[in-house]
């Protein structure tokens, strides 16, 4: 349940923003969660609801944008989506760090994000 730590960090971040700005009501919090993280968005929503209860942002909706994985291959200079693993037992195909062109190791360039992208509020 690392989602609980992340939800707590999320609430701290938003409340710190509310403290520093003239905010009467937070309407929505927008998150970006990368495909290469193991942050489970449903669990994160559940934790968010629990952690925000009785805070100034209890009614703010949580919008989660998934950020797709991207890699760069130093062997064949490929840049783009990695090879996906269909056989993984996770319901959906899993991004790997394998180059889909040459099959060698590729470096991730995107997909590790876990950030607050934006806050929509009434001043």
């Amino acid at each position: 349940m690392h989602e609980l730590s992340i939800a707590s960090s999320l609430v701290e971040g938003v409340l710190a923003f509310v403290d520093r700005h003239r905010v009467s009501k937070v309407l929505a919090v927008r998150l970006a969660v990368g495909e290469l993280t193991c942050v489970e968005t449903e669990q994160l929503r559940f934790c968010y609801t629990a952690v925000t209860r009785e805070t100034a942002i209890a009614t703010a909706t949580l919008e989660i944008d998934q950020v797709e994985a991207l890699v760069r291959c130093s062997h064949c200079a490929y840049e783009g989506s990695p090879k996906y693993w269909d056989d993984a037992l996770s319901g959906t195909a899993v991004p790997t760090l394998q180059c889909p062109e040459c099959g060698r190791a590729a470096e991730p360039t995107q997909g590790h994000e876990c950030l607050i992208k934006g806050i929509r509020y009434v001043p």
């Binding site: 992340i6 960090s9 999320l10 971040g13 923003f17 009501k25 309407l27 998150l31 994000e113 876990c114 950030l115 607050i116 992208k117 934006g118 806050i119 929509r120 509020y121 009434v122 001043p123």
Partner: peptide, 20 residues
């Protein structure tokens, strides 16, 4: 209810894993 022109939508890049 706030009318649209009263809503602020600001962009942040606040990493939730940054503290760790």
């Amino acid at each position: 209810e706030a009318v649209p022109e009263e809503i602020y939508d600001i962009e942040l890049e606040h990493s939730l894993l940054e503290a760790n």
